[in-house]
Simulated scan of single mutants.
Amino acid sequence: MMRVAVTGASGFVGGAIASALADEGFDVTGYGRRGDGWRHERGRYVRSDLVACTGPLADVDVVVNAAATTDEQASVGDAFAINADVPRRLPSLFPGARIVHLSSSSVYDAEGTRRGLREDAPRPRRHLGSYPASKAAGDRAALAAGAVVLRPHAVYGPGDTTLLPRFAALVRDGLLPLPGGARSWHTLTRVESIAEATLLVLAARPASGVYNIADDGSTRLDRVLCEALRYRSGRHTRVVSVPLGVAWAVARAGERARRTGLVERVPLTPYALTQVVSDCTLDTSRARAAFGFVPRHTDVSDAATW
């Protein structure tokens, strides 16, 4: 029986991966920082702060690293500690284990043309914040350790604590104000697809490298958000377009205020703004060829249960 460690198991993506592996009969140990972390009748959970760990944690065959902070307003130190340093130290934390690392489409250029992005797309000269910069550094560290790196985009589905709740919190009287009306095109990634891709990687043992993981085709952000919010609340939501000039002024002013220490958090960051107004569609042909990944259709019809 293959022994697998899943870091970040108390989180949205890590928990889904750990449960899928346990369901398939793998010997799974989940690691997370929360005391009330992942639970599964055929798995174990260990509360552990990987940032503070210095020695080997376990003797396993594979480690799936889903430990991360997705807060784009995290300090540079906090973001790099978990998103970059943990991937770098995986070989010492789990000696001899094969590594599967969960990355993010945020490593791609947030300001360039982002349609049909392949894994070898040019890297940006600068990243818009600590989150994409630290994820890019983690990418490099994982690849240097011989990992298989999976890059999803805009992960959604059961257990989502970030994407849909963030937009739902903006709704007032059935109106959702979004920069430019959020008329951008995206290939979202259902969380179960990441779990399926991980299972395929463990079976096929593809070469170390980067593989995009996303749904089939693309969807317009404003439309899929309204659809998901309708399923979630039972009420129709209408997107109200916020002028881009106003949105950029707010984002840049907030960024200056954060850099100078006037405030700790702002309502809108340049990174978050680009995610709403810029297209981001991924080419998944490399994952299809390397380990038989089959993208699923985007489906938010069960949003009421997330």
Rank of each mutant, 00 (worst) to 15 (best):
D139K: 09
P122S: 15
R166H: 06
E196W: 01
T161Y: 00
A133C: 07
R205N: 13
A204S: 13
P158E: 11
R172N: 08
G159N: 02
T198K: 01
R172D: 15
T189W: 05
L178G: 00
L188S: 01
G157D: 04
A137D: 06
P177Q: 10
H186C: 14
A133Y: 01
A204G: 00
L128I: 13
H127P: 00
A133F: 11
I194P: 00
A195D: 08
G157Y: 03
T162Y: 12
A168Y: 08
V149C: 01
A145E: 05
A137H: 05
R125Q: 15
R115L: 11
L199Y: 01
T113E: 04
R125N: 15
L188V: 05
L117P: 03
R115A: 13
K135S: 02
A182Y: 07
R118H: 03
L178K: 04
A182N: 12
R114G: 01
T113Q: 13
A182G: 02
G138F: 13
G174A: 13
L163Q: 04
R205W: 02
R115T: 14
L176H: 06
I194C: 03
D139P: 07
L143P: 06
A142H: 06
L117R: 00
W185M: 09
V148P: 02
A137L: 12
R114P: 10
R115V: 15
P152K: 03
R115Q: 12
T187H: 08
S193Q: 15
A144Q: 13
D160S: 04
A203N: 10
V171C: 08
T113C: 10
G112R: 14
K135R: 15
T198P: 02
A142D: 08
P152E: 09
T198I: 11
T162R: 09
G112T: 11
K135N: 08
L202R: 01
R125F: 12
S134P: 12
E119N: 09
G138I: 04
L128P: 01
L199G: 10
P179H: 13
V149R: 03
L170S: 04
R115C: 09
V171E: 07
